[in-house]
Amino acid sequence: MSVKVKDLLEKVKVDLIYGDDQLLEKVIRTADISRPGLEMTGYFDYYSPERIQIIGMKEWSYLNAMTSHNRYQVLRKMFQPETPVIIVARGLDIQQEMLQAAKEKGIAILRSYTATSRLSGEISSYLDSRLAERTSVHGVLMDIYGMGVLIQGDSGIGKSETGLELVKRGHRIVADDRVDVYAKDEMTLWGEPAEILRHLLEIRGVGIIDVMSLYGASAVKDSSPVQIAVYLENYTTGKVFDRLGNGAEEIEIAGVRIPRIRIPVKTGRNISVVIEAAAMNYRAKEMGFDATKIFEERLTQLINKNEVAND
């Protein structure tokens, strides 16, 4: 994935102060952001010009205290051709020397009325998600009751059909067939569709359908966390499946581990309803309500009661 300055202009609340189409095509290659401090005093030993440079109130005030000549010399050294963009926060005035240095080095200037720390956080979050390394997995990603559920299984087992049934039941589809996932942070996995497959679903015998056109905007979602994986397996005699819910299994995707549930598929089973129940049960466990533990406690109480009665 790559991000251009024009993408930032569209996604973050900033105004274009200086820059043409060519400058807006500059590629942002790192999610790291720089707030130049020591550089303004002339210390450039560890300066990273390839980062977005944000000028907040402190930086702006320090520059304002300089003479026009010194301000221009510092900014001219700070702004380099590889610098993707300069962003001035808090709606501060653009100093003439800053504009001149940006024009000389070919760098766009954007301005935001957002507080510096908040602006930095918004940009970092956006860049982290866009520049994170993607991993493609086969499956259907659904938003079920606000839970991101990745449905996987052997080819032809009915993943897309199950996704369509879940859409009809009021849930939202994020991606079909190919899901691009990335680690948003060390604990959070995020998924989105490949652009060519966005809002599309393939049903064998019918072909490709546009879910948004057929079922409306409420039936689709552009991205979602991936919190639980459901693996559909053909039911065969003798194959053992977890019946109590205490057989914890996990899979690792993009360095993040998420729980996985194996569900047997056979004629007569309503898989979409089972997946709904699995999503709600996972959410209940996250909130501290574990039906398996309740059953085990009741079973232990019953055994103890019977032992006392036999004595």
Rank of each mutant, 00 (worst) to 15 (best):
226 V>D: 03
29 R>G: 03
5 V>R: 14
92 L>W: 09
185 D>F: 08
178 R>Q: 09
95 Q>K: 15
99 L>P: 13
216 G>Q: 07
288 G>V: 04
68 S>H: 06
311 D>C: 03
246 N>K: 08
165 E>A: 14
198 R>C: 03
186 E>S: 10
52 I>H: 03
284 A>L: 15
270 N>T: 13
137 V>W: 00
301 Q>H: 15
102 A>F: 09
64 N>T: 04
139 G>K: 04
162 T>Q: 11
77 K>F: 08
155 S>V: 08
104 E>Q: 13
209 I>F: 14
253 I>R: 05
74 V>Y: 01
214 L>F: 12
273 V>N: 10
260 R>K: 14
266 K>C: 09
270 N>C: 11
47 Y>L: 06
175 A>N: 00
241 F>C: 00
28 I>V: 15
31 A>I: 00
176 D>R: 06
294 I>C: 03
203 I>A: 07
274 V>K: 12
174 V>K: 00
101 A>T: 11
206 V>M: 15
289 F>W: 14
129 S>T: 00
242 D>K: 05
134 R>F: 08
164 L>M: 10
195 E>S: 02
266 K>H: 15
178 R>D: 10
297 E>G: 10
41 T>A: 15
239 K>L: 07
56 G>P: 07
278 A>N: 13
160 S>C: 14
30 T>I: 08
220 V>A: 07
301 Q>R: 15
108 A>S: 09
225 P>H: 00
300 T>K: 15
